[in-house]
Design a protein around this nucleic acid. Structure first.
Length: 419
RNA sequence: GCCCCCAUCGACUAGCGGCCCAGGUCACGGCCCUUUCAAGGCCGUAGCGCGGGUUCGAAUCCCGCUGGGGGCACCA
């Protein structure tokens, strides 16, 4: 039997990094086993629904490359069927009407237990379970009823979710048993924590996928990073492609303890993915990213600048600050007397240059430094500042080549003459 | 308060009784390379929460404690 799982976001806002991690586990599991991965919007709480969020959720998943099978379903659409079943439970004596709502009768003795897919056996004393509302007095079903109901209806075989759902599980098991429905395997992955040790949530430090994308992270890096939060392949493998993740993922190797996000590691990993791209793909990624950010910089020029920055930045979002001088002339820097004379000398040296390319610039500038008895690092730094507007930049000679003769000389002259 | 879950370097983790005076990755420190910043190479600092057991032997099993997290809605 092929497994069938579901991703079940509530449409209360953007998809955030914690939610996606859980979805990723579902998706990897389904794809590995040739099963199905459904997308169900759990919108039974109409008061908290945020317009546009369903679109956003889909867009985020698509960008990440996480797909789903069949049409998206909405939990509220099962409302009528839930109500019919709830009424049947009332007739069978398993539920009762309470102030217009229908309430499920929980057993008050014994234990409800299951073998969790990641944690092993978990037991709850039934006396802890309170009779829960199945259908609100206004007719809408509640989450804890609709969710297991739909799991049964959709023949979900594995419920992979965050461990904040552990305490809902015995309730849902009781409902499923009352319905004579088979139980899925429940597997609770550890939640993600914020820096403060609290659970990550939309309103608690969790970045949305949209924000991460805007910061210049790329999807494969994000997937790789997220997969490693609570799961590991072995004792040394870190970088894994999407296909490798699908091949290697297993519930058995999902851990139990909550994880804290380390954005420094995410940055590093994103850099690994960025550097691994072909120059062409990297240029395309930059162009696409800048377009999304409403940049109007010339695409061709971005592609030309791309190889100069590929090894140097770890998020696409760093491009404007790092390479913006290719597109906009930076303010004239304030240099001291000695620095200005170096810049002036550089201008004279380059003016006479016949072929304007990086190797030639390199040779000429080194000769100039040598003639003036300067160490390369001392000579080049003022030139760098004059040309790029910053002490930190792509390679100086390559930058000068790309900037072109006229623009370079103009900047050198301006910096040399500035008081 | 009650119930449940969790507990290895600062972070993510490997470890499922001897292979571990604990391995990998990020971060951090040092060195090398070097036109800046990166990248890369080499080296290093740093951890099994505490207390009892069980065992010839425990990071690994059991109990307690402590600490952290989650849940206890006509929220999801």
């Amino acid at each position: 039997m092929n497994p069938r799982v579901r991703m079940a976001p509530s449409p209360t806002g953007f998809l955030h990094i914690g939610g996606v991690r859980t979805f990723l586990f579902n998706w990897l599991f389904a794809r590995q086993h040739g099963g199905e991965c459904l997308l169900r919007i759990e919108n039974t709480d109409t008061s908290r629904e945020v317009a546009e969020s369903v679109e956003q959720i889909q867009a985020s998943l698509r960008w990440l490359g996480i797909d789903w099978d069949g049409p998206i379903t909405f939990q509220l659409d099962a409302m009528e069927r839930c109500k019919v079943v709830a009424e049947r439970l009332v007739e069978e004596g398993k539920a009762y009407v309470d102030d217009g709502a229908i309430r499920f009768r929980m057993p008050d003795e014994g234990v409800t237990a299951w073998d969790d897919g990641v944690r092993g056996r978990i037991e709850f004393p039934n006396e802890q379970l309170e009779d829960l509302v199945l259908v609100r007095s206004d007719g809408r079903s509640t989450y804890n009823f609709a969710s297991p109901f739909e799991d049964a209806e959709d023949e979900i075989t594995h419920v992979i979710r965050g461990d904040d759902h552990i305490s809902n599980t015995p309730k849902q098991i009781q409902i499923l048993q009352a319905l004579d429905a088979p139980l899925p395997v429940y597997a609770h992955a550890p939640n993600l924590l914020g820096d403060d040790g609290k659970k990550l949530s939309k309103r608690h430090g969790a970045l949305s996928i949209e924000e991460l994308r805007a910061a210049g992270y790329v999807a494969p890096a994000l997937l790789n990073f997220l997969a490693l939060l609570g799961w590991s392949y072995d004792d040394k493998t870190t970088i894994m492609s999407r296909d490798e993740l699908i091949e290697r993922f297993s519930l058995e190797r999902v851990g139990s303890s909550p994880a804290t996000l380390d954005y420094q590691k995410l940055d590093w990993m994103n850099g690994v993915y960025l550097r691994a791209m072909s120059p062409e793909d990297y240029g395309d990624a930059l162009v696409t990213y800048l377009r999304e950010q409403d940049s109007e910089w010339d695409a061709e020029r971005v592609r030309q600048a791309a190889p100069l920055v590929q090894e140097k930045i770890e998020r696409l979002g760093q491009f404007p600050e790092f390479a913006g001088f290719f597109f906009e002339r930076p303010p004239i820097p304030g240099l001291d007397q000695q620095e200005r004379s170096i810049v002036a000398a550089a201008k004279r040296a380059l003016e006479a240059l016949e072929s304007w390319d990086a190797p030639a610039v390199d040779v000429r500038l080194r000769a100039m430094a040598d003639a003036d008895g300067l160490k390369p690092r001392d000579a080049f730094q003022p030139i760098r500042v004059a040309v790029t507007g910053s002490k930190v930049s792509p390679g100086l000679f390559e930058s000068i080549e790309l900037l072109g003769r006229d623009e370079t000389l103009a900047r050198l002259e301006a910096a040399a003459g500035a008081v």
